[in-house]
Design a protein around this nucleic acid. Structure first.
Lengths: 357, 357
DNA sequence: GCGCTTATGACACCGGTTACCATGCTAGCC
DNA sequence: GGCTAGCATGGTAACCGGTGTCATAAGCGC
């Protein structure tokens, strides 16, 4: 009853103008002695402005500390200046590093990064992301692995006319909208590293089915071994789930084989940590009895004992590249169809050594 | 020369209407046979709408899948529906978990989360964050530790009329804009745990000066020891920097003392990992020769061997609480001056055992 | 019949944009 | 040389999709 009147009072109070008004395009126009349309032309780099006028307007904007209101601009443009990042947290370090990279690339562009965590197993996943894109009229979306492998999602983005970048672990058939690392080359390098150390009985823990990174890492590793003249029996290849626990289980299976492997490659660091655990349970020393290689170079890898030999991929740089790709779409008209490819590479630490005789 | 005409053509092409137009407030108004102002009233829960009208409008909005355009609304409201998260990455897991918690709390509210990584040592730090807030007319900002302890920053937000929440490790004098954990209670618990196990020679690795968490964790730990009748000599308290390397260095100093401590508390898990490293170098076994306790319960803590006894704080819940606090400010008029306080607590794992005789 | 409350609409406005028109200037034509 | 065509430049009005303000009509108690 009385609440209604009080809420009205409060709401009218809510519009506190705060005396200091933002400088607007009109202010600049008035001061420069031109129309706001001309200021708008300067803002949008229209070629139909006399150099003299452009300079005057630009210096006035500088002086007044004017920045155009993204909401107003967006409203007129029928789009926003927001970039979405969609992720289903597989790895916190990766997510944050990627964010930092993207923010780095976005700096000074006037675009902002809006994050959106989701659950790829939720049945509403797609429509929920779609609603997000639609509601905010996102200019672009950066999709992190493993969601980046979801073709249906990408198709939806394309239909909505929303720019996007897929972060992937290999170059796939996606002209221009891909930022990828070269997982398979790096795992081949890892395989050769182990071969060179004299390992021939090697165990491989793969990622879970359905992940492209699983295939890339496996393919590269096996190719690298083959180049070194080593063929892996099927029983030496075990599936994991990219989790610590699955790494333990997989390692237990591998270490039960006879002859026992002298080296294990785990398709990510979490599983490699699981290998450490299993090895300890069996009283095996690393790297004396068993060499271990991981993938990702997460902080965990260097806290383990001994520090883990692993594969690093340049997440920050890839994030920045993704941002730059979207910015290019925002300014240039011509999309470049070149995918950005970043090398992943082996970081040798102390978990690998010569094979025991 | 010719570039001007070509760019014009391209830009006019850029405004591709894409046939399918968003449903607008006008559409709803026309279909409902009311003015758009009335629809707006329904959207904003104005009490001055007949129940019958409200129902009709609401069901139409439902049916048409209408959601108001946040840009247009924001433009009129002179604010945005964006929440900023400002962080200076001390810990990736914390940042991501916090983001997930905030997104959880924001879900369905129409607010989005815009992330902003920054460097608190950059001289432009303050003005840069200020520009961010201003430019996007942020509705609110969530400030993560350790930046949350920067009073100047908070003062600036207050001046700008921007709502904010500080995430902190203790209740400080900041009515209503604080989401805090109880670090000191948890470290007191850790101290008593060690005392109960018979440890009397205990080392403490503090966080770096200038951090409130440093003070809280130290204060609580010392108080807990005192309660157990243990007084720590000054030389048993060493400063660290919340990094792995600083943990190693601090542990080396502590383990050189004679008599040597039988337990070390590190003020975060990274430093605790450093303690593990130092202990290994000296051939000390954990927990046989040395008990270790950390703080944060990061993934690293359970990958270490033996798994680390540490303090967990409910980051996800705190993130959600921060979001809810801001949403309350967006709807209610009455700010509640209650700070949200979340208990941190000890997670006992295998790095602590009875003191060696 | 008056005054108060409730419910609704007309209209200007938020800060930018596009579409279209008006101007000034130069060049080309008779 | 005058007149018009053509281009560079700037202005005006309408619009993007919602809000605020204010006026007004209907309902009600007295």
């Amino acid at each position: 009853m009385s609440s209604s009147s009080s809420s009205r009072k409060a709401s009218s109070e809510g519009a506190r103008g705060d005396s200091k008004r933002r400088t607007t395009i009109n202010d600049i126009a008035r001061l420069a002695g031109v129309s706001k349309k001309t200021v708008s032309r300067v803002l949008n780099n229209s070629p139909f402005v006399r150099e003299e006028t452009r300079l005057k307007v630009n210096s006035l904007m500088q002086e007044m500390g004017y920045t155009p209101d993204p909401q107003a601009r967006g409203l007129a443009f029928r789009r926003s200046f927001l970039i979405g990042m969609v992720f289903d947290n597989p790895n916190a370090q990766m997510v944050v590093t990627m964010q930092e990279g993207v923010l780095d690339g976005l700096k000074g562009s006037g675009f902002e990064l809006v994050v959106h965590a989701c659950d790829r197993n939720d049945p509403n996943f797609l429509s929920e992301v779609g609603a997000f894109v639609e509601r905010q009229k996102l200019f672009g979306v950066i999709v992190l692995p493993p969601i980046s492998e979801n073709d249906t999602l990408v198709e939806m983005l394309k239909e909505r006319g929303c720019h996007y970048v897929r972060m992937a672990s290999a170059v796939i058939d996606e002209p221009g909208n891909l930022v990828a690392s070269t997982d398979s080359l790096a795992t081949a390098e890892a395989a050769k590293h182990l071969a060179k150390l004299g390992h021939t009985r090697i165990g491989f823990i793969a990622g879970p089915p359905g992940f492209r990174s699983r295939e890339e890492r496996r393919k590269g590793f096996l190719a690298g071994l083959k180049d070194s003249g080593i063929e892996l029996p099927a029983k030496n290849i075990v599936d994991g789930a990219y989790t610590y626990e699955s790494g333990i289980a997989a390692a237990e299976r591998l270490l039960k084989l006879s002859p026992r492997p002298t080296a294990i490659f785990a398709s990510n660091d979490e599983m490699a940590a699981g290998v450490y655990h299993a090895a300890r349970q069996l009283g095996l020393s690393i790297p004396g009895d068993l060499s271990v290689v991981g993938f990702d170079d997460t902080p965990v890898s260097s806290r383990l004992w001994p520090p883990l030999t692993t594969v690093r991929w340049p997440i920050h740089d890839m994030g920045r590249a993704a941002a730059q790709h979207l910015l290019r779409a925002a300014t240039d008209q011509a999309p470049d169809d070149d995918n950005a490819v970043f090398p992943a590479f082996l970081v040798e630490r102390e978990s690998t050594a010569a094979a025991p005789k």
